[in-house]
Design a protein around this nucleic acid. Sequence first.
DNA 1: TCTACTCACACGTTTGAATGGT
DNA 2: AACCATTCAAACGTGTGAGTAG
Length: 572
Amino acid sequence: MVMYLPEERPVLDLPYQMNHLANNYGYYPQDCKEPICRTQHGLNGRMNSPEAELTSLPVHVSLQDRELWDKFSNIGTEMLITKSGRRMFPSCKVTVTGMNPKVKYVVIMDMVPFDNHKYKWSKDRWEGNGSTDPHLPNRFFIHPDSPAPGEKWMQYPISFHKLKLTNNTLNSNGLVVLHSMHKYQPRLHIVQSPDPCNPHNPGGYLRFTFPEAAFIAVTAYQNQEITKLKIDNNPFAKGFRDNGLNRKRFRDNDSQETQDSDGQAKQDFTPNEHVVGQPQKDEDVDVTVSSSVDCSRFLSSSEVASSVTPNPFISAFINPSTAGGPSPHQNHTILSLNNSLNNSHLNRLDSFVLQNNGFNFFPSPREARSSSLHSLCAALPVAQSSCVQTSTVDLSRLPSQISSPLNPQQHHHHSSPASQTPGRSIIQLQPYFRTPPHPSRQCPDMELPLPLPPKLSRMQLPESALRNLEMTPVSDYVNPRPLTDILNRIHFRALASGPSGKVLQNPPQPEQYLRGSDRELRPQIYPAVHEYIDQQFTLNSMLNSQTEHRSQMDYANAKSLTEYYCEQQTRK
DNA sequence: TCTACTCACACGTTTGAATGGT
DNA sequence: AACCATTCAAACGTGTGAGTAG
């Protein structure tokens, strides 16, 4: 486990080191963890402690590849944004602990402004360049494996490497839209599916931000050291290593760079490196199994009513009769919500959905609108064993300590701005499961046939992990735990995506799965935090928009995802 | 002139279909 | 027929540098 010592982190000589917008709480002591929990009860705003499920769990999140992130952060991370979308490098990979292994969760990521400033690259450093452009509507990247049981989320790091950034506001291909020359930081949302056994329990909602993953969005790299770091660490950029000598186009150019014995350009940013307590590479044995799901759809507020297909995972439950069944490449959804979505707009959306579906599940459009986050989750499959309870949190009681990612010494306490945080912020939810869960939910998912896992990419394994595999003593091959772990994880993913693959003979039992807390490597731990209510509304609104689609669903006959796919298979 | 941005390009990786062997 | 390993080509991800717009 790697302990993170904020006081010892290097201070980057950049303007605007303080993060005024990112309600971020990465450095709370664990007992300061405060959740967001939404419920239809508890108007008093108090957290009914024993009843809280997700929010009462010791859920912690830690960012993976801290060594790499620190290298970038020490220089000033830049992320390329292009019209067609660019992946992040490093990508966000997080490990989660403390979830209920049996309860299903939706994991979402978005980018939030780091501060109120626009930047410009001046010679060799970033400088402030006026105030920020109007913030773009949030677009949320729902992890393609969502929903999945906590057991699965905790088993291996959750990778968001397929998240793409763009500066094209018109792009509707599932990209997260950012402003160039602005600073952002990733934010993770963990949303618990509500328990159909207990309609009064809408589950909970936690949110985490990662200040050391903050970056400036650029259309072209400004800092050559960042370029060099990317080339040296991103396998896709191998063609540019050796100072580009591998490239035919530049082969004739003489390089002035010093080369090491392997012909690799030496990195020269060491003066700024000050990585505290980072694991040695050889110790870094975490393995991330990437998802094979592709990103291609998103849902913006303006498109809510225009028949945009939501996440197939979700749509399978929204309308099982029309969903297309399992696909080798499920789309996942990015939702775009405009905070300024007004009531009239919402009313129009409600009317549209209700009228066009000829289906009046919601007692009223208003109720549909207020259904919020957990209405979406109600449509998601929920683990049989989940018996979560209702809880309420009084946000006004929560600490709001903010730490600057680049200058942690500047920790300070500050209370939530009155403009952003009402004294007591209670999110009310309406549960939509009105009947007991389908009897087939008595059958645990584990009994389903086990599809074969997709191929493991060498690139998705850290170099150290590869070295470990290559150097593993013979005796270790007798008990190849890493591989079984990988297969176990893939098994879990496959369960979530349907029994469409091949079958393994001995599917592991749930008890065999590693708990996240059992992992050896636990870098920076992020206790859960609360957020300002307006930001809650952003996600709230986002999920409301999905709720509009849910109106097609007959909740009385809601099926689990695996159940649905089983039916699809049987029909074939 | 400067800055921010777009695009085509070359190179490397990933992916899945096709093929052949057991 | 089923399974497995290998091969191959297309698709994709990457930074570069020339060109463009304001």
